[in-house]
Design a protein around this nucleic acid. Structure first.
Lengths: 214, 214
DNA sequence: CGGCATCCTCTTTGATACTG
DNA sequence: CAGTATCAAAGAGGATGCCG
């Protein structure tokens, strides 16, 4: 099982020998954003995966030393899948993919994509970057049908946390799709409002907002 | 052609919808490290790829706007495959994979991997990082059967260039495998010397060398 | 229920051969 | 040089069954 090695003396090829199979990187994404998972948690976060494939992928990741299987104590009373240190080290790969892929999230409108609420803050933080020195602190509150999150730019690294901030400079309310579209730059503020996004507060904050430079 | 979409509202999944197919990221690697390529240059840099697959991948990358096909003027007189801006933007993904995969390059000793000399400096630079302020400048000369490169740490970002430096602090000579093993930390200096690496000069330079922290 | 294993069909791949 | 064409083998997807 697993796919044939590329057989190249190149670290990119070697990496893909291990995590390049279909679904593998998404299994790692789930473990990164959900933390330790039961088998069914993983299956739920990977809609469409065949059960035998999830099983195969977990075994391969275990063999490669990226995932560890642990029998959880009574309250859970089942096996949990954990990332090892080496598995957690794939985070920069996932993050790079998340940043590159953000412009495509909005761009397949006809298809009804699956969605899990806990993916959303991860998508948002993927295109925040360290603010340049001298930037004013700012808080942007996101309110969606599937949850609320606050982006807080206080220290050098912006943080996305679940919940509602005290005195946000800006409140964006609407479908996650609209918020992603606006923050990623694929829609203008005007287009987003036309599409149904509610914008309250100081929209100028967006201008100085620490997005990833496109 | 191409693999079925994951159908997830997640930027990682969207990215993998486009670059997640087998061979696709390696085609991008070739275009990144070789620059604009003819079809046969790509085929040569991707040993083992079937011609129809290379053809498919190039068409998919073109359709997705990552690659542009151009008729080159007379001296070349054939079509060249270029990366677009969007294609070049995958570089952080490739780099993250290269860094993560570096520890596996050395670890499949039995297999005879394919090798292309121009991959080597790219592998080396993948695990160099910006030096901390106050680090002394240093030059390390690499000499291998397939070429020589100099790592120069002068400005904040180390540079790998082809050729021979004037007065290197350290010279490492041997098979690329040995050098990668040493620089990536998977072999000690002693093991590398035992394995046939020749080390001349100030080996202490390695200690202060700006490697990616493991 | 959680964690698979099996069986079956369909798509993608790999290898080789051939062409404008 | 830059692909197509063909075909066998492998992997993916889907359904269902099993076992603690």
């Amino acid at each position: 099982m697993g796919v044939k090695s590329y057989g190249q003396f190149c670290s990119v090829a070697k990496a893909l020998d291990i995590v390049g199979d279909r679904w593998t990187l998404l299994v790692l994404r789930e473990l990164l954003v959900q933390g330790p998972c039961r088998y069914t948690d993983l299956a739920h976060g990977l809609p469409g995966i065949a059960s035998n494939l999830l099983s195969d992928r977990l075994r391969m990741l275990e063999d490669a030393g990226l995932v560890r299987r642990e029998a959880a104590p009574p309250p859970v009373a089942t096996t949990l899948f954990h990332l090892t240190e080496r598995g957690r080290a794939t985070e920069p790969v996932i993050a790079a993919l998340a940043r590159w892929g953000i412009s495509y999230v909005d761009s397949v409108p006809g298809v009804e994509d699956e969605f899990r609420p806990y993916w959303f803050p991860h998508s948002v933080s993927a295109f925040l970057h360290d603010r340049p020195p001298g930037t004013d602190p700012a808080t942007v509150q996101l309110i969606t049908p599937i949850g609320s999150w606050a982006i807080e730019v206080v220290g050098p690294t912006p943080e996305v946390r679940e919940g509602v901030a005290d005195a946000p400079d800006l409140v964006l309310e609407g479908h996650p799709r609209l918020i992603i579209g606006l923050l990623s730059g694929s829609s203008t503020l005007e287009e987003s409002v036309d599409g149904g996004l509610s914008v309250r507060g100081d929209a100028a904050v967006l201008g100085s907002f620490p997005l990833i430079p496109t």
